Amino acid sequence: MSVAATPPSHPVFHTSLRGHVRRAVGRDHNPLCRPLDRVYSGLITGVALMLLVASVLAVVAAVLVYGAQTRDATQLARHRHVVTAVTTGPAQLVDPGAGRVREHAPARWTYPVGPGSGFVPVPDGTSVGTAVPVGLSDAGRPVGAPRPTGLIVSDAVLTGLGTVAALGFVTEGWFVLCRRRLDRRAERSWEAAWEQVEPGWSGRR
């Protein structure tokens, strides 16, 4: 009567990361360690390195976004001049279909390059003839306020998290694919070895 056998669990998954590194570089001299175990350790070491690289890239991406947006905000603030404008018409919604719910009103202002007019953002319910502050560029055209530091930090953090998530997803997919292939190799190797050992072990001829 033949005896069914199942392949042993891979000891590679019960080893610390340091042990995986030692095994992957051939410094683990355990006689029970198979070549396939070293390949598994190399795979896990590679995953750890990829996650480390992903973390570094996430920090770099966050710093780059923060730096770029900070420079843009500083540049805008340097060339933005706040003057007092007077509304010449009632406040109204501008392009509400696009989600812009802040009211704007027609207004006139005086600036060194000459008088100007246009639609400027105003508080809700602003009446005609109200004095409101408006930011102008060097050329006298209305410009928005520089991006707040809080939003810049939020963008940088989200960029870093997005980078980690994307690279982590790729790393996980690569690990799962490689592990399945190695599992199939382990099964074939175990079945071949069992075919040679089982007859003598079970007494079957």
Rank of each mutant, 00 (worst) to 15 (best):
residue 136 L to A: 06
residue 94 V to A: 15
residue 191 E to V: 09
residue 81 H to C: 01
residue 164 V to F: 05
residue 74 T to L: 13
residue 82 V to Q: 11
residue 136 L to W: 00
residue 79 H to V: 07
residue 79 H to D: 10
residue 125 G to H: 08
residue 86 V to A: 02
residue 112 P to F: 07
residue 50 M to S: 12
residue 70 T to K: 11
residue 147 R to P: 07
residue 54 A to H: 05
residue 201 W to E: 01
residue 192 A to R: 14
residue 110 T to V: 14
residue 83 V to N: 00
residue 70 T to D: 14
residue 167 L to N: 08
residue 86 V to D: 02
residue 15 T to W: 09
residue 81 H to L: 09
residue 188 R to V: 10
residue 99 G to P: 06
residue 102 R to V: 05
residue 204 R to G: 00
residue 137 S to Q: 13
residue 180 R to P: 11
residue 174 W to D: 07
residue 2 S to W: 15
residue 179 R to W: 08
residue 36 L to M: 12
residue 82 V to I: 10
residue 97 G to C: 05
residue 104 H to P: 04
residue 102 R to L: 12
residue 172 E to R: 14
residue 97 G to W: 09
residue 80 R to M: 09
residue 21 V to D: 06
residue 178 C to P: 03
residue 74 T to E: 15
residue 162 G to K: 02
residue 96 P to Q: 11
residue 71 R to D: 12
residue 97 G to K: 13
residue 12 V to T: 14
residue 7 P to W: 01
residue 174 W to F: 14
residue 105 A to Y: 10
residue 46 G to K: 02
residue 133 P to E: 09
residue 37 D to N: 13
residue 157 V to W: 05
residue 124 D to M: 08
residue 146 P to D: 04
residue 186 A to H: 07
residue 185 R to L: 03
residue 56 V to R: 11
residue 91 A to G: 06
residue 25 V to P: 06
residue 92 Q to H: 10
residue 20 H to V: 03
residue 123 P to T: 01
residue 146 P to V: 03
residue 198 E to T: 03
residue 95 D to R: 15
residue 131 A to P: 12
residue 82 V to T: 13
residue 109 W to F: 12
residue 15 T to G: 02
residue 48 A to K: 05
residue 38 R to P: 08
residue 103 E to W: 01
residue 102 R to A: 15
residue 59 V to P: 06
residue 187 E to P: 04
residue 151 L to S: 13
residue 112 P to V: 00
residue 137 S to R: 09
residue 85 A to K: 02
residue 164 V to E: 07
residue 202 S to M: 10
residue 102 R to G: 12
residue 26 G to M: 12
residue 201 W to Y: 08
residue 28 D to W: 12
residue 5 A to G: 03
residue 184 R to Q: 10
residue 136 L to P: 00
residue 165 A to M: 00
residue 36 L to R: 04
residue 56 V to I: 15
residue 116 G to D: 08
residue 47 V to W: 03
residue 45 T to R: 05
residue 108 R to Y: 13
residue 107 A to N: 02
residue 134 V to G: 01
residue 55 S to N: 10
residue 42 G to M: 02
residue 97 G to D: 15
residue 39 V to R: 06
residue 65 V to R: 06
residue 64 L to W: 14
residue 147 R to G: 01
residue 138 D to M: 05
residue 143 V to Q: 02
